[in-house]
Design a protein around this nucleic acid. Sequence first.
DNA 1: AACCCACTGTCAGATTTTGGCAGCAGCGAT
DNA 2: ATCGCTGCTGCCAAAATCTGACAGTGGGTT
Lengths: 247, 247
Amino acid sequence: MRPALEIRKPTMSRSERLLDLVQILRRHRRPVSGRALADEMGVSIRTLYRDIATLQGQGAPIEGEAGLGYVLKPGFMLPPLMFSDEEIEAIVLGSRWVAKQPDKRLAAAATDALAKIAAVLPDDLREDLDATALLVGPRADHLETIDLGVVRQAIREERKLGFVYRDAGGSSSRRMVWPFALAFFDKVRVMAAWCETRQDFRHFRADRMSDLTATDIRYPRRRQAMLREWKATLDAPGRNGAKNASD
Amino acid sequence: MRPALEIRKPTMSRSERLLDLVQILRRHRRPVSGRALADEMGVSIRTLYRDIATLQGQGAPIEGEAGLGYVLKPGFMLPPLMFSDEEIEAIVLGSRWVAKQPDKRLAAAATDALAKIAAVLPDDLREDLDATALLVGPRADHLETIDLGVVRQAIREERKLGFVYRDAGGSSSRRMVWPFALAFFDKVRVMAAWCETRQDFRHFRADRMSDLTATDIRYPRRRQAMLREWKATLDAPGRNGAKNASD
DNA sequence: AACCCACTGTCAGATTTTGGCAGCAGCGAT
DNA sequence: ATCGCTGCTGCCAAAATCTGACAGTGGGTT
């Protein structure tokens, strides 16, 4: 499908190439040598070193180790982007909502993202953002017994997850599941997963899970496919999946 | 404070200058001539025309009219930005939450913002984003009787707002207020404003407002200052502002 | 020790950017 | 209509920048 060495159009501005470079790096999980990157982009290795330096200067988390190659710490590079007033308001309000979630890691990420956006804005716009008069009400304190960050990571990496579940009746059981989605309701957070024991899709309320165990075992299906399939099963029988939030 | 003509450092890359240009345009509300912009950036007018063309090509809403000058339709230009996995997850989740809000205009803006982000992502990342397995539960249908977009615009532009309010007791009265904040709770949206009639800060539940009338009259205070003052009055007496959501 | 690799300095040639000039077209005021 | 101001485009040579090749240093792996 794709030639081993991609020959780039000669008319590619430097800034475009820099974005491409981040992208290529993202595709490789293992360290890649500068030589290989230079070939793939169709530039000399000297230029590649200069590009890497420029990207690092712009804050891209690229690490180079002698004898190994380059690795990009997981992340997304967004090119320059225009947003309307309302679009920025929406993003800020949404991030503020996330920042109040009980999932502390995610909440911190939302705060960081807002800070990054604020940092690059000119002064007058930053003021606007600080003063963006859309507030999120306080949430009922919800002490989550588990670290939802572990669940999100398992979902991202498509790995099996073990835990103890206390169902509506009060009885507990140990489960091993393939998690693929996490839904945020007003009061509870619900993980959707394929349950190995039951051999079916099941929903698990976060406040009834305990003894979370992340594993290294990748489950044999694609998250996206499972998501689709699961949504289909929801549409078929009843109204929607809001109610069957238990196991 | 600032010299009339800012002389730019000779070592400024083109891409930096383009961002600056958007910023300068934002500062001027009235149309600015290309000549003035070129002087302010320290480049020739020919180069300025090229820069404008490039920006327009990248989607910036800049409009030029012969005999007048350039105007930038309100909007924000974000430079290239790196986000971590979790930060992007936070932004996407937050925007999805906003997209489910009863405020239709704001919800649409959230959807648009997500689409813009998705559009510039490479294929594999867009998949990730589509499949980002963080979902927001459905909201209780809340038919807002008024268009919250009008409220948000009045807040943005610091203009007076008229409406009819039906208080907790059931009696209605016409109000003229200086709105400065809008808070999103799980079930209701509450506008915070200075009430001209009562000569005090008051909260108004969106579902009890009707006959909204936007005015052209700017109120005589800064939104940000009112926000600060209002927060101070909240901290002083009771716990917080969550409960006094009525007038 | 041999090899791979990241990284820097230098420098000439390729490429892009820039500024000045000329010219056309739309808009507003006189 | 005429004039002045302005947006916008093509052209070309000068200026600035980017690029590739070579040489060299130092760290890490085999």
